[in-house]
Computed example of a mutant assay.
Amino acid sequence: MSISDVATERAPVSQTAPVSDVAKTPRKASPRHYAMTPPTFFTVEYAINPWMDTSKPVDTHLAMNQWESLRQTYKELGHTVELVEPVEGLPDMVYAANGGLIVNGKAVVAKFAYPQRAGESAAYAAWMARHGYEPVETHYVNEGQGDLLVVGSIVLAGYGFRTDRRAHDEIAAAVGMPLVSLELIDPRFYHLDTALAVLDDTTVAYYPPAFSDESRSRLLELFPDAIEVAAADADVLGLNAVSDGLHVVHPAAATGFADQLADAGFEPIGVDLSELLKGGGSIKCCTLEVYS
Rank of each mutant, 00 (worst) to 15 (best):
D21Q: 14
E137L: 07
D263M: 12
Q66S: 09
A172N: 03
L90M: 12
K111R: 15
L83M: 13
A110W: 04
M93E: 14
T203W: 00
A254R: 11
P178M: 09
K111G: 01
P251K: 08
F211R: 05
Q260G: 03
V109L: 01
P208M: 07
S4R: 13
S4W: 12
S282C: 13
S153I: 00
T43P: 00
A157F: 08
P38N: 05
W51D: 01
E134A: 15
A230E: 15
A205C: 10
F211N: 06
L237G: 05
Q260F: 01
A174Y: 02
I3G: 10
L101C: 05
A17R: 15
L273F: 09
R162V: 11
A126G: 04
N240L: 09
W67L: 03
H79D: 12
P50F: 11
P31K: 14
T163A: 13
D164R: 04
A230W: 00
L83I: 14
Q260M: 15
S215Q: 09
D272Q: 01
T202A: 14
P178S: 07
D59E: 03
S4Y: 11
L276T: 08
L237Q: 05
F211H: 08
A172G: 10
R216K: 14
A205I: 06
T40Y: 05
P187R: 13
P178H: 08
T16W: 03
V249W: 02
L199F: 07
F257C: 08
Y207L: 11
Y46R: 14
P12I: 07
T40A: 14
L70I: 05
P12E: 10
T203F: 01
A35Y: 04
T73F: 02
G158P: 10
V236E: 05
W127I: 09
V155A: 04
H168Q: 13
A123Y: 01
P26V: 08
V150W: 01
V109K: 13
T138S: 11
G265N: 09
Q15P: 00
D147W: 09
Q66R: 09
N142H: 06
T73G: 04
Q72G: 00
A264V: 10
H79F: 06
F223P: 07
V81Y: 07
S217P: 00
M36N: 08
L184A: 07
P209G: 11
E68R: 14
A126D: 15
A23Q: 12
V248S: 05
F41L: 01
V136Y: 12
K24H: 09
L179G: 02
W67N: 03
A7E: 13
R188E: 11
V103P: 03
T80H: 11
H247E: 07
A125I: 02
A11L: 12
D59N: 15
A226D: 10
V103Q: 01
I269A: 00
V81P: 10
S20H: 11
D263F: 01
R10L: 14
Y34C: 03
P178E: 07
P91V: 04
S69A: 15
L196A: 10
I171H: 10
E143Q: 05
G281K: 03
